[in-house]
Computed example of a mutant assay.
Amino acid sequence: MAKVCFLLANGYEDSEMKNPYEAVKEAGHTADIVSLEKGVELKGKKGTVSYTSDFSISEVKADDYDAIVIPGGGAPEALRINDEVVEFVKQANEQGKVIAGICHGPQVMISADILKGKNATSFVGIRDDLKNAGSNYMDKEVVVDGNIITSRTPKDEPAFIREILNKL
């Protein structure tokens, strides 16, 4: 079974964390919540779910995981400005690990500079950011390019989850 890292900070899109997290665990995989600090409560922007971080980013290495999932909402903004998070995602990509981002999640991938030449999608509000990062933006429910999986919005979660589970 795979070991999956969910990169999380406050203000994430509730369902974009809850649904993939539960699906990964139901499929028998291990799911760790990694944030900027260990043991802190992280609240979704709609307030329907909250999680406590298992590890801080300084406690983990890309080697520890088979995949990284980055839910959207406001959380990716807080994550992408942290050098350790950016380096973690960059190293995971160099190791060919699955990296999945939905909605604003690809912002972390942009900061890690791993989307150049890749097909990708995202929330329409960061479409130009993806293009400026050198990716080929596609307006589709899910885009898989090698080890990178991206989706647009909560309504795309079934396809996003399906592709994550396929890769695991």
Rank of each mutant, 00 (worst) to 15 (best):
M1A: 15
A2L: 08
V4R: 02
C5G: 02
F6S: 03
L7V: 07
L7W: 02
L8T: 05
N10H: 12
G11I: 02
Y12A: 02
S15W: 07
S15Y: 09
E16G: 04
E16R: 03
E16V: 04
M17T: 12
K18Q: 15
K18T: 14
K18M: 15
N19R: 13
N19C: 15
E22C: 08
E22H: 12
V24W: 03
K25L: 13
E26C: 10
E26G: 10
A27R: 05
G28I: 06
H29P: 06
D32E: 12
D32N: 14
I33F: 09
S35T: 08
L36W: 04
G39H: 08
G39A: 09
V40K: 10
E41A: 12
L42A: 04
G44R: 02
K46T: 14
S50H: 14
Y51V: 14
S53L: 09
S53N: 11
S53H: 07
D54A: 10
F55S: 06
S58T: 15
S58E: 15
E59Q: 14
K61E: 15
A62I: 09
D64V: 09
Y65V: 03
Y65E: 04
Y65G: 01
V69R: 04
P71S: 08
G74Y: 15
A75E: 07
A75Y: 05
A78S: 14
A78W: 10
R80D: 01
R80E: 01
I81F: 03
N82I: 07
D83F: 08
D83R: 10
V85E: 00
V85S: 00
V86M: 00
E87K: 12
F88Q: 01
F88L: 07
Q91F: 05
Q91M: 10
A92N: 03
A92F: 03
Q95F: 09
V98A: 02
A100H: 01
C103K: 00
C103D: 07
H104T: 07
G105R: 01
G105Y: 00
P106N: 10
P106Y: 01
Q107S: 05
Q107C: 03
M109H: 01
S111Q: 11
S111R: 07
A112M: 06
I114P: 00
K116N: 12
G117R: 07
G117S: 08
K118G: 00
N119G: 10
A120E: 03
A120N: 05
A120C: 13
T121V: 11
T121Q: 06
T121E: 05
T121R: 00
S122H: 03
F123A: 10
V124F: 15
R127N: 11
D128Y: 13
D128I: 12
D128F: 12
D129Q: 12
L130A: 05
K131W: 11
G134P: 06
N136W: 06
M138G: 05
D139V: 11
D139Y: 13
E141I: 14
E141T: 15
V142E: 06
D145N: 13
D145G: 11
G146H: 09
N147T: 08
I148N: 00
I149V: 15
I149A: 06
I149H: 04
S151F: 04
S151W: 03
R152F: 06
R152Y: 05
T153P: 09
T153F: 10
K155C: 13
D156I: 08
E157Q: 15
F160C: 02
F160E: 00
I164L: 04
I164K: 01
L165C: 10
N166H: 12
K167T: 09
